[in-house]
Write a protein that binds this DNA or RNA. Structure first.
Lengths: 106, 106
DNA sequence: TTGACATGCAACCAAATAGTTGCATAATAA
DNA sequence: TTATTATGCAACTATTTGGTTGCATGTCAA
């Protein structure tokens, strides 16, 4: 299931959401309650952020009774790496050289 | 000069801005006017987007007479790759396995 | 010197975003 | 059964964002 690249970039744009991903990368499969601990915002705030992460397919939900477990899905990050960042890699040194030259000539 | 990671993620979150980076990667050092061509929004709109890219240090400006040249700076993209995406790489296969198992067990 | 060209600045507007609070629902534990 | 716990849903608010328009400024070319 390939999610829209834009959803992924948008989801990564917020520091709270990156924090949540970081926490899941430290301990995968946490409940909503656990993820709320030591966060500066309310539970509902966290819920909304997680909903965006889920929409971007960065996080996958598994219900277990009344608990909602959150699992990291590494695929979209990989996708950004390969399809987007990877695109700039071949020209990287070239671009750097061009930039330096332009700055010298000014 | 190391820019705030958040500025970089924010700058990358908009499709117009990614489009501008794409164009510069095709042809580096373009003027504002050139970058405005075939864009759906007004010149002022483009200017604002470029200002954010510049603030994130993704684009560097060089003035040449009355023309403003825009150069791609590959460093921040590299930074995201190494410091952020790279962080998820070691655990990638582990996370994928954990996710699959959680989905099976549900 | 005058006109055209490349860009900047400021004010304004609509829509999206990030956050809140209050109440409802479903699962577990006593 | 009754509390308690874990979560969802909806309404509301303030701020940020992405876009516009109108006018100003500085540079180049005739």
């Amino acid at each position: 299931m390939t999610t829209d690249m834009n959803d992924i970039f948008k989801a990564l744009a917020d520091p709270c959401r990156r924090e949540l991903l970081d926490r899941l990368s430290e301990e995968n499969g946490q409940t909503l309650g656990a993820l709320c601990e030591r966060m500066a915002i309310s539970r509902q705030g966290v819920t909304k952020h997680l909903a965006l992460l889920e929409a971007a397919n960065l996080v996958v939900i598994v219900w277990q009774g009344r608990e909602k477990l959150h699992y990291l899905n590494p695929e979209p990050i990989q996708q950004i790496h390969q399809r987007w960042i990877g695109k700039f890699e071949p020209q990287r040194l070239q671009a750097l050289a061009t930039l330096k030259k332009a700055l010298e000539d000014k």
